[in-house]
């Protein structure tokens, strides 16, 4: 049996809102040692989502036997919208479940609401992602990256990211013209999350589809910072930290064959 209680429903709500537009169906793997893990790939096979909600993200977590919950995220999202952000949220499943029980408890009122979501058998193929060495890594405020991704999409369907020791440059060239945004590393002592950190083994220039970057920044509400790891001619990793765990996106770049 699985029983996981979140202190606040908002965490799972935000996670599902971050991924449901990229992947519609996915398997939630549940185990006592790993909590909940998900790997899912979008239909175009360009964007991969790797989610880990550790047991530490829950107020209470027990999972007697490893379980796979096949979920339609659109349906789960509908059910999660029934609860308030501050409610306790408990998800419950039997050992061979055909449904997931979702329970909201209002902390102030004596109100408990229960929903049952039908589970599905989902055939998903899983990719092997080795721990990669990266040419460079940037950590920056998540909202700032989101603004750049959204703004630059209005200029071009591609966004070029150029990293050097001294700066990260976002470059867009489109029909109406072009634009670039240059950020330099700095440390904000009072608000560390406002800092921009660049770690560099070697400079990188990579181009990504603006559409996918705009899917990724839907996770902005989850974390104050985003870490972007880039390697020449390889998929990029965008990581949003959860209180205990992470939401990672792997995005294939564009380049000439």
């Amino acid at each position: 049996m699985l029983e996981g209680k979140f202190e606040e429903a908002s965490l799972l709500k935000k996670v599902i809102e971050s991924i449901k537009d990229s992947v519609k169906l996915c398997n939630f793997n549940c185990s006592q040692s790993k909590g909940i893990t998900v790997q899912a790939i979008d239909d175009s096979r360009v964007l991969l989502i790797a989610l880990k909600i550790d047991s530490g993200s829950f107020q209470e977590f027990r999972c007697d036997r490893d379980l796979v919950l096949g979920l339609d995220l659109e349906s789960l999202s509908k059910i999660l919208k029934q609860g308030n952000n501050e409610d306790y949220l408990t998800i419950i499943a039997e050992d061979s479940p055909d449904s997931l029980l979702v329970v909201f408890e209002d902390k102030k009122k004596d109100r408990i609401s229960e929903f049952s979501l039908k589970l599905m058998d989902i055939d998903s193929d899983v990719l092997t992602i080795d721990d990669m060495e990266h040419d460079c890594s940037i950590t920056m405020p998540a909202y700032e990256f989101a603004k750049i991704a959204r703004d630059m999409k209005t200029l071009s369907e591609s966004l070029q990211i150029i990293i050097t020791k001294d700066s990260v440059k976002f470059n867009a060239e489109g029909q109406i013209g072009s634009g670039s945004i240059i950020l330099k590393p700095h440390t904000d002592m009072e608000k560390p999350d406002e800092s921009i950190k660049i770690e560099l083994n070697q400079p990188v220039v990579l181009t990504f589809g603006a559409k996918y970057l705009n899917d990724i920044v839907k996770a902005t509400a989850l974390s104050s910072t985003v870490t972007i790891k880039l390697t020449d001619k390889a998929p990029a990793l965008f990581e949003y930290r959860l209180p205990s765990g992470y939401l990672r996106y792997y995005l294939a770049p564009k380049f000439d064959d």
């Binding site: 964007l47 991969l48 181009t207 589809g209």
Partner: peptide
């Protein structure tokens, strides 16, 4: 114009 790559090119299936 550059070509959009897919992840299958970089990661193996399990």
């Amino acid at each position: 114009t550059q070509k959009q790559q897919t992840l299958s090119r970089f990661f193996g299936s399990q």
